[in-house]
């Protein structure tokens, strides 16, 4: 078996005196579908931020594709193929939907150099998240839910090898959850490794080949989803009440 695509060791992050993450150990295999769950405030998004270079972790290290990422700025990480969607969508407000996707296509994939048909790729991506007919609209015209889809499409636009979807399904109707789920699984079948952060247990369980649980900045479980959700401390900390 080949070496993991992502290796996190001893990762720690503080905000002032508050320990947001401590001693995180995590490996993700190539082509894997990993679910990451945990109560609100347990540090999931902070972990994503540390992996993608949006925040700096004080301790530990992150290796992507065999390369240690210490100190590498976010834009270089996404160029290596490490992409994420933001939990609270952060669209480029003055750009149309198509132009929103154009930015990562131009900057993260070297799309221009490789002669990719940028226009067409924008259209295809918007089609995937069923926003094609709004290509020329501004993000301000979208609903919260459409904004999440745009956020996901923008993360996919960079042609990532590892995609982290941070609560991309929150607020979606069951039908829409299924659409996004199918989309992520299709992407995974094309070889993209995916980490899915999600509260909707139905989706997490349908998607994940392995489940990791964070509670109060620590990893308390890591393994087969069905086993993990039966683990007493997980039930108590997360699924309980």
């Amino acid at each position: 078996m080949s070496d993991p695509i992502l290796t996190v060791s001893g990762l720690g992050k503080r905000f002032g005196g508050f320990v947001a993450l401590a001693d995180i150990e995590l490996q993700v295999e190539r082509g894997e579908r990993l679910g990451l769950i945990g109560p609100n405030g347990s540090g999931k998004s902070t972990l994503v931020n540390c992996l993608c270079g949006t925040l700096r972790n004080e301790t530990g290290k992150v290796a992507f594709d065999g390369r240690v990422l210490d100190g590498l700025p976010a834009y270089k990480r996404i160029r290596m193929g490490l992409a994420r969607s933001f939990q609270l969508p952060r669209p480029f407000a003055s750009l149309t939907l198509a132009e929103n996707l154009r930015v990562p296509i131009l900057y993260a994939t070297g799309g221009q150099g490789r002669g990719v048909d940028v226009e067409r790729r924008c259209g295809d991506l918007l089609q995937m998240v069923s926003l094609a007919e709004k290509a020329q609209k501004l993000p301000g015209d979208l609903t919260q839910i459409e904004m999440r889809k745009l956020e996901l499409a923008r993360a996919m636009a960079s042609d990532p090898r590892l995609l982290i979807a941070d609560e991309a399904m929150a607020g979606l109707s069951p039908g829409e959850v299924d659409d996004i789920l199918a989309l992520l699984i299709r992407l995974n079948e094309q070889g993209v490794t995916i980490i899915m952060i999600e509260h909707i247990m139905r989706a997490v369980l349908a998607f994940s080949q392995r489940l990791v649980v964070l509670v109060a900045g620590r990893k308390i479980a890591d393994g087969d989803p069905q086993d993990v959700v039966r683990q007493p401390d997980v039930v108590e900390a997360y699924l309980g009440s």
Binding site: R84, F92, V103, P104, Y107
Partner: peptide, 21 residues
């Protein structure tokens, strides 16, 4: 120009989209 516009709108998201801000 698209890189500039991305910076103007959201610098953090620009960086996360590969823009060397």
């Amino acid at each position: 120009g698209y890189g500039f516009a991305a910076i103007r709108d959201d610098e953090l998201a620009a960086e996360a989209s590969g823009v060397p801000t």
